[in-house]
Every structure is written in C-alpha cells, then in structure tokens.
Design a protein around this nucleic acid. Sequence first.
DNA 1: TCCAAACCCTTGGATGTCCTAGTATATTGC
DNA 2: GCAATATACTAGGACATCCAAGGGTTTGGA
Lengths: 168, 168
Amino acid sequence: MGNPLPRDPIADAQRNWERHGWGDVAAPMAAITAIMRTQQILLARIEGVLKPFGLTFARYELLALLSFARSGALPMNKASALLQVHPTSVTNAVDRLQDAGLVVRSPHPTDGRTTLIELTAEGRTLAKSATAALNTEVFGQSGFASQDVDQLIGILGKFRRNAGDFAD
Amino acid sequence: MGNPLPRDPIADAQRNWERHGWGDVAAPMAAITAIMRTQQILLARIEGVLKPFGLTFARYELLALLSFARSGALPMNKASALLQVHPTSVTNAVDRLQDAGLVVRSPHPTDGRTTLIELTAEGRTLAKSATAALNTEVFGQSGFASQDVDQLIGILGKFRRNAGDFAD
DNA sequence: TCCAAACCCTTGGATGTCCTAGTATATTGC
DNA sequence: GCAATATACTAGGACATCCAAGGGTTTGGA
C-alpha cells in the first residue's frame, strides 16, 4: 500500500498537538493513534495468512471459538458475547461459514429462540490448520520483544477491565 | 453491545493455547488479540464523540490532517500516505466530506494527474470543534496511566518502525 | 521525438461492523 | 391464564477497508 515514510507520522501528530497548546493530551492521543495503526498492520498480516484457507479473521475467530467448546457447538448469543462483536456480525459470519460447509445451524433443544452453531468435521480440520499457520507465521514472529508482550498484556488488560469488558 | 463477562475472554484464550501445547506463542497471541479488542473499544468511543459533528473517524482524520497543513490543502496521494490507508479510502472520505461542504477538490497547478484536497472555512471550524471534543472526552480520559501511555508509545513505535511504517 | 512504463485517481465488487427495525419465542407479573 | 416485557436472531441500510481494473497524465529511455 505504501513505502516507508521518512518520519513517524504519529510522532509528527504528537508534535502538532503540542504546538497547538494541547500538550496535556498529546501523549494519550499518540498512544491511541498508535494502537489504531498497529491493529491495522496486524490485521493485514493475519488476513494474509488466512486467505489461502478461504477464511477472514472474523470467520477464523468464530471457528476457533467453536473448536474450543467441548461439544463443538455454541448458541449464537454466546458467541457474540465471547467474541465481543455485534450479534449481526455473528449472523453474517455464520452465513458465510455455513455456505462454506464449515458450520451448521441447529435449533436449541429447549429454547426455541436460540440457534446453535455447530462445527462440521471439515470446519474442525480447517480451524486446526489455520491455527497452526497463524501460530507459525504471525504469533511466532510477532515483532514484539518478550518483555514487551508481557507489558502489553498487562496494560491492555487493565484498560479492558476498566472499560467494562469483564469483571474478573 | 454487551454486559461485562465474568472472566477475561482473552486470558481464557491464552489458557486454551497453552492447554493445546502452543505455549510458546500463547502470550503473543494474547497480546495481539488484546490490541484488536482495545482498538475496537477506542474506535467506538471516538465515533461516539464524533457522531454529533456528523463525522466518522476516517473523515475526522483527513480533516485534522488538512488543518495542520500550512496551506490547508494536500494532494490525495499525500493524504493516503500520511494516513496510511488505501487510496480508495481517501477517495471515499473526500467524496463524503465534499458533499458535506467541508473540503473541495481542486486540480494540481502543475501535475494534471494529481488532485488537491482543500479545507473550506466550514471544514476548518468543524475540525477545530471536533478536535476539542476528542481531546476532552477521549484523549483526556483515555483510561491509561501516564507511564502506561509512555510504554505504549515506545513499544508500538518500535513495532511500527520494524513493520516498515517509517524509516526515521 | 515518441512510445512504453510509471503514476494518480475513480469505479465496482467483496467483507466486516454497527444500527434500526421486525418477527418469533420465553418469561414475568397481575 | 393472559397480557406486557424481555430475549434471540435476521433483514436492510450506512460506512469503511481493501483489491482489481480502467482511463488520463507524466516521465524517461530508445
């Protein structure tokens, strides 16, 4: 999409903020902008690895979640809560995964409102392969130093708890 | 979108990874997933603040970038490079900002291929107001401790340079 | 000089996310 | 027991992002 810039655009933005008298919030602004950009870079890497499997990150996440469920099945609302995305996003992902034969919808045995998403054998196999690829090509070469990984987990964990993600 | 979960879903995922024998990449996986989720939370906050201004984050970023350019104008390819998004995303954003009367397209004086994006007076005013709101309601209450902000800027800066964002 | 290669922007298509209903099923309260 | 409320999923629309392809403009080497 582009070649390296001569200078860090986020550091430039931070300087602009300071120059305009917003020095008190310049650093948080830079940190937040850096998070946005880092997410973009990581997502691109992940999608690149998943593409050969015919998966996107959203679909992979759902597949992986199901593969960790004992029964290989979850109610849609549960999946929505655990993945922390809007229910309509799950509907969308399930539609496509079902078209690809990786999951099937089945009615909940006791609650007529609820739909279960169930992994097919093919889906389970693909999830395993895709996870192996991600482990090798992304998580295993994240570009973060080991102690930085720990820092990130700690800092972002605090933030997420504070933001109301979980009570723990 | 959802209530707090009883437990941290990312910590659970990390435990799942370890349980399946992928302990060597479990931590980077958790860190990367945390970045994805944090970005989602921050984006939602930002968009919430910008909504009353009729702006999205993508449009705000372009507006802010223009407001820092001396002349208040930039070539589209320059904007694309600085914002680090695909050129078509800039086309999209400019279309909508132009419909809203916040920017105008004008031909480049010497290069017939290039289109300049220029801030209107109205655009400049709105950018100022929106920035003030973001500073107060998001960056000023980021939820990150001061030393964590510095950590993030450092760690993510290293990562972005390493990923080829900038040479600096 | 002149044509091929490089560059710039836009259009069209695929995905994902969220929001706002709308339909169907459960649960609650009187 | 029945109406009111809550919950679950889906349909349609608005946005943003990327990729692939197309048409116009410049540049540079033969």
